[in-house]
Amino acid sequence: MTLLVAAVIVHDREAGRVVLLRRGPRAKFAQGMWDLPVGKNEPGEPITATAVRELREETGLIVQSDKLRLAHVIHGAQGVEAPNGFLTVVFAAEEWDGELVNGEPEKHSAVVWTPVDAIPDEFVPTTASALLRYLVGGPDVSVDSWDDRDAAG
């Protein structure tokens, strides 16, 4: 079964910054790399609820689901916790409540506002691509780890 995942780009347009987290030494994958707030969908949970829940758990920021805008979709052939592939729905939020905190210090070594012109290179490739594509206005879909024959089309 394909793993369903939600990620959120919290974009402070006025200040020209986004929220990033750094995966800690005990993270399940990509230890020490930067990432978006991201997490797995729970059974019976709408993907927008996943995005709202994961963002709140990881960063303390509260976003209303009706304020989420679809930013990007990533379809991966396989992942660390997804041998049968994953689908990451990336949302953008420009309105939120709360103060930025590291809500899961056992998973993340840092949760920070980062200028959009200073996105770190040590970034999980799939979400980095989604963030950079969002910041330049598209394209809205990317595929990862599929061979060229399957990805063409």
Rank of each mutant, 00 (worst) to 15 (best):
W34C: 06
E104G: 03
L20G: 08
V90H: 10
F91E: 12
N102D: 11
V124P: 01
G39K: 04
D150W: 14
D148H: 07
P139V: 11
A51C: 08
A152L: 13
V111L: 06
D140T: 11
A77P: 03
M33Y: 03
G98P: 09
T48V: 10
L20I: 02
P115H: 01
T126A: 13
G79A: 07
G24T: 03
P25M: 04
L55A: 07
V80T: 12
F91T: 05
I62Q: 14
H72S: 10
G39S: 02
F91D: 10
F29P: 02
R69G: 03
T48H: 14
F86G: 01
R69M: 05
V38P: 00
A118Q: 10
G85N: 10
E58R: 08
E122A: 09
E45V: 11
L131N: 06
G32W: 12
A82I: 02
V111I: 01
A30V: 00
W146V: 09
G24D: 07
D97C: 08
W146A: 04
R133M: 11
G85S: 10
H75R: 15
D140M: 09
Q78F: 11
P37L: 10
E54Y: 05
W96G: 06
I62N: 13
D148G: 04
W113S: 01
G98Y: 09
L100A: 06
A130M: 09
R22I: 01
F29R: 14
G32N: 07
W96L: 10
K107Y: 07
N102Q: 06
E57T: 07
E94H: 06
E57Q: 14
S65Q: 09
N84G: 12
P120L: 03
A51N: 06
P43L: 13
D150Y: 13
K67L: 08
A82W: 03
V141Y: 13
R149D: 05
L61Y: 04
V90T: 12
G79S: 05
E58I: 02
G103R: 02
G39R: 05
L131F: 01
E104N: 04
N41D: 14
P120T: 00
I62M: 08
A118Y: 00
R56H: 12
L21R: 07
V90Q: 08
F91K: 09
V124N: 05
L100Y: 14
I62R: 14
T127S: 13
A130Q: 06
P120G: 00
H108V: 00
Q31Y: 04
K67E: 12
P83N: 08
M33T: 11
V18Y: 00
A128K: 14
